[in-house]
Design a protein around this nucleic acid. Structure first.
Length: 854
RNA sequence: GCGGGCGUGGCGGAAUUGGUAGACGCGCUGGACUCAAAAUCCAGUUCUGGCGACAGAGUGUCGGUUCGAGUCCGACCGCCCGCACCA
């Protein structure tokens, strides 16, 4: 009894594929193009199970599409800039570039060991000047187009990574990588004008039909469109106005105060002359932005000497600086209408401000309506509101906006939650921002003929902070305009900058002159199927959509959406283990028996915790390299794809891998060890007639081809594998060694092999060869089901009495309703239930069911 | 608080448009082979009752629509995810 010897077979076929360059994507082809892309990895040095899942999924798509005749582009590269390299440099005294390049080499080998159908000729690494020089050019073009600008503003500061974070990189008030509470700092930063595309990014979501609804919704919410009004309030005894944004202009007569953000220019100016206010502002800026901090924080205000005038009545209202007003949203100031906004109500109660209801529910009399502890936010009719009285909320909004516009005191407007993308990072291991600061000329773009601005590799991490700042020579340059001594920008780009256009670089990866040729990008883009984790829903996936639009406006591209199809895979999880002291244990340190789990080294009992996403901190990780060495790549791939639907979390279990391994060997033995004569020869023609069992199996094979094809199209890989297993079980159960059995046995196995090829490419390639086939499977077209053999001419029909199953009968396909009814009424169980009476009604669903209603 | 998703055997999960619930696999039980074990093979495995044929119950809970509901509708319970002082 032989075993699938993956140690020999898998490297052999990888070498064959490489020798024949079968995965090279052709920039010019008669065939229709298909671009499959998985999110590229950060080169940490070792692949993890999440990578294996991601790339196994993508590889199934790529191999399947190739077999379907598409000209497939399936590239791989490295998202190579980022902080882990700097941290490693500090810990191990290794230059980040060296560390990163070694990691890339190691991970490339590990990935290659999975047998992925990658066109390695297109490999890219974002940390190399031949990659990032093009994005420096793009940045200069953005600058010219007004899509990039420098601005001093309050930013999110990660105290651990010592850098600024974009809004999207702050999760629950904490840094997305470090988990450290984010602080506020005021810094001059480069920003990209993503807000210019807010409407386009929002409305185009409707057309992203092959994206998960969940991601589309997350992006919609993130962009956060709201319509309302801008209102300018004049200040009493001042030649000045304060602008606010509101979604409820209808409640303007219910106003009782005006509140400014602590960072509002007016607040800052007042604070400059009022130490108490300055203290209040400072306190607000210290406040955390995490959920708990926000929840706990009391609504606090500081009464200023200013008074705001109501635009319609001229009435005077107190102006506060309030800790709950965000400078970043709307106009950085609000008018408070306590009766119809809970937060305003809390504030008004605290500072004893008037609460005047101006909207009453339809069924409540205007004079009987009041607001106590709960603001009324429902629909209704306007009251206490002069010319608005009696109008509905929507009518009143329109009326107020109309009046504001007449008076020149405001207008209807739309506001987005989305903020511009701050791309400056105070870190070394990133793409240098190609600008120079000159005392005399200000900010000067590096002339294009001086690109790339190369990141120096001879840097020291001895001092804290950014090594580019400490480098002896790098930052000192002459101003390109006036020639005076000047200083390079030492901030680098956010690493999401690199990943915002890498999918385009793959279309033309070796172009030295430009980032990519427009024709080549025009041919390959958009990506037909993109695959990755959902964690990038509003990060990378939003930035890339923006970048594509910006590149289009700068003449690089002719499309707006980079990813036509998106699939978000689930996480790879594993049980967690802890010893008696509560310390985490690796799965490899634990032995499981029927009784429970024990530490392998000393047999001490181990507590089994719930299954969670594999993470180093909980040690619930299984190294894919170990799995590949023990079971081979195909077994690992098969298990990844077998049980769980790809969009759901997958529970990695040793038993599951064993199951996949058993299956691999079962088909291995059935084919590689098949006795002489049991299997027809490769060129044996189909016998003119097949016995009943052989004919049934032949049909099952065609049905399986049909079903698996449909499953692969819909990402139902687990179902596809279940179908293939059903077919292989049926082939194994086929008895007899006559010519028809021998022929159909071969046909069955060949079908299994061809359908399984995208999942287990090495195994099937070898078995195909052993079945006497000369052409490599990778070069073979996808099998076709014969439509005539997909349908049965006998069908099993369920017989129900009052909706309950009582029998099943076999009938010819598409039998007449009368015949089906007669056959049903003739069955023993139906006759017994009827007891001589006539049924009230009989429902016949052709080929499916007969329901006898008594 | 707002928005979204999901609840099916001991477990992962199947189940076009409402039409035989539990495919496929894991685990478990029994058996064969073996001195023994592993591997492999065979049989069984939703629950309850019965030797059995069979009968009853069953897709989170309660109710509804329907000849027929895992699937549709309403209310509730539980879990998961996203956003969150957004004016």
């Amino acid at each position: 009894m032989s075993r699938y010897d993956f140690r020999v077979i898998e490297p052999h076929w990888r070498k064959e594929w490489e020798a024949q360059d079968v995965f090279r994507a052709d920039d010019r082809s008669e065939r229709e193009k298909y671009y499959v892309l998985e999110m590229f990895p950060y080169p940490s040095g070792r692949i993890h199970m999440g990578h294996v899942r991601n790339y196994a999924l993508g590889d199934v798509v790529a191999r399947y599409k190739k077999a379907r005749g598409f000209n497939v582009l399936h590239p791989m590269g490295w998202d190579a800039f980022g902080l882990p390299a700097e941290n490693a440099a500090i810990e191990n005294k290794r230059p980040p570039a060296e560390w990163t390049r070694e990691n890339i080499a190691a991970m490339r080998e590990q990935l290659k060991g999975l047998g992925l159908s990658i066109d390695w000729g297109r490999e890219i690494a974002t940390c190399e000047p031949d990659y990032y020089k093009h994005e420096q050019k793009m940045f200069l073009d953005f600058l010219k187009a007004g899509l990039a600008y420098r601005k001093e503003s309050w930013v999110n500061w990660d105290p651990v990574d010592q850098t600024v974070l974009a809004n999207e990189q702050v999760i629950d008030g904490k840094g997305w990588r470090t988990g450290a509470p984010v602080e506020k700092r005021r810094l001059a930063q480069w920003n990209l004008k993503i807000t210019q595309y807010a409407e386009s990014l929002l409305s185009a979501i409707d057309d992203l039909e092959r994206w998960p609804d969940k991601v589309r919704l997350m992006q919609r919410n993130w962009i956060g469109k709201s319509s309302g009004a801008r209102i300018r309030f004049a200040l009493a005894e001042r030649e000045e106005t304060v602008e606010v944004f509101t979604t409820r202009p209808d409640t303007l007569y219910g106003m009782s105060f005006l509140a400014l953000s602590p960072n509002h220019p007016v607040s800052e100016r007042l604070a400059a002359e009022d130490p108490a206010l300055a203290d209040f502002v400072a306190e607000c800026n210290r406040m955390g932005t995490s959920e708990e901090a926000v929840e706990r924080a009391e609504k606090k205000g500081y009464r200023t000497p200013l008074e705001a005038l109501h635009p319609f009545t001229g009435e005077r209202f107190a102006v506060y600086v309030a800790n709950f007003v965000l400078m970043e949203y709307g106009a950085g100031a609000v008018f408070g209408c306590p009766a119809h906004d809970q937060r305003d109500l809390d504030f008004a109660r605290k500072y004893d401000l008037p609460v005047l209801p101006v909207v009453a529910p339809e069924d409540v009399a205007a004079d009987a309506f009041s607001v106590a502890d709960e603001a009324y936010v429902g629909p209704g009719r306007l009251i206490n509101s002069d010319f608005l009285d009696g109008l509905s909320v929507e009518e009143a909004k329109r009326a107020v906006i109309g009046r504001l516009e007449e008076l020149g005191a405001g207008e209807g407007t739309i506001t987005y939650r989305l903020r511009d993308w701050g791309v400056s990072r105070q870190r070394y291991w990133g793409c240098p921002i190609p600008v120079i600061h000159c005392e005399r000329c200000g900010v000067v773009a590096v002339p294009e003929d001086q690109l790339p601005v190369v990141l120096p590799e001879d840097v020291s991490f001895d001092k804290p902070g950014n090594p580019l700042d400490h480098h002896p020579t790098w930052k000192h340059v002459d101003c390109p305009d006036c020639g005076a001594a000047a200083r390079r920008e030492t901030d680098t780009f956010d690493t999401f900058f690199e990943s915002s256009w890498y999918f385009a670089r793959y279309c033309d990866p070796n172009n030295e002159a430009i980032g990519f040729d427009a024709d080549k990008a025009g041919y390959w883009l958009p990506v037909d199927q993109y695959i990755g984790g959902v964690e990038h829903a509003v990060l990378h996936l939003l930035y890339s959509r923006f970048f594509t639009r910006a590149l289009k406006d700068c003449g690089y591209l002719d499309i707006e959406e980079p990813f036509a199809g998106l699939f978000t895979q689930g996480m790879v999880c594993h049980e967690t283990f802890r010893d008696q002291d509560g310390k985490w244990l690796f799965p490899s340190e634990v032995t499981r028996t029927g009784e429970g789990a024990f530490r392998a080294s000393d047999g001490a009992p181990v507590e089994i915790g719930r299954s969670e996403k594999m993470s180093k901190s909980r040690k619930n990780v299984v190294d894919p390299v170990d799995i590949v060495e023990t079971y081979g790549a195909d077994t690992a791939r098969l298990f990844m794809l077998s049980d769980s639907p790809p969009e759901r979390d997958l529970e990695w279990t040793e038993a599951g891998v064993e199951g996949a391994w058993r299956y691999v060997n079962r088909i291995w033995r059935a084919i590689a060890d098949a006795d002489e004569g049991v299997m027809a020869s490769a060129d044996a023609p189909r016998p003119d007639s097949l016995g009943e069992a052989a004919a049934t199996l032949e049909k099952l094979a065609h049905k399986t081809i049909d079903g698996v094809t449909a499953d692969l199209e819909r990402f139902h890989f687990n179902r596809a594998i279940a179908r293939i297993r059903e077919l292989s079980n049926a082939v194994l159960e086929l008895e007899g060694d006559g010519p028809d059995a021998a022929w159909v046995r071969r046909f069955g196995w060949e079908s299994v092999i061809r359908l399984l090829n995208p999942m287990t490419p090495h195994l099937t390639e070898e078995l195909w060869r052993r079945l006497g086939r000369e052409t490599m499977l990778v070069a073979l077209d996808w099998p076709q089901a014969d439509p005539a053999l997909v349908v049965d001419d006998q069908v099993t029909v369920a017989i129900q009495v009052n909706g309950k199953l009582r029998a099943t009968i076999d009938l010819p396909r598409d039998a007449a309703k009368e015949d089906a009814e007669a056959a049903a009424l003739a069955t023993e169980n139906v006759r017994r239930a009827l007891d001589g009476k006539d049924p009230r009604k009989v429902i016949v669903v052709p080929n499916k069911i007969v329901n006898v209603v008594i």
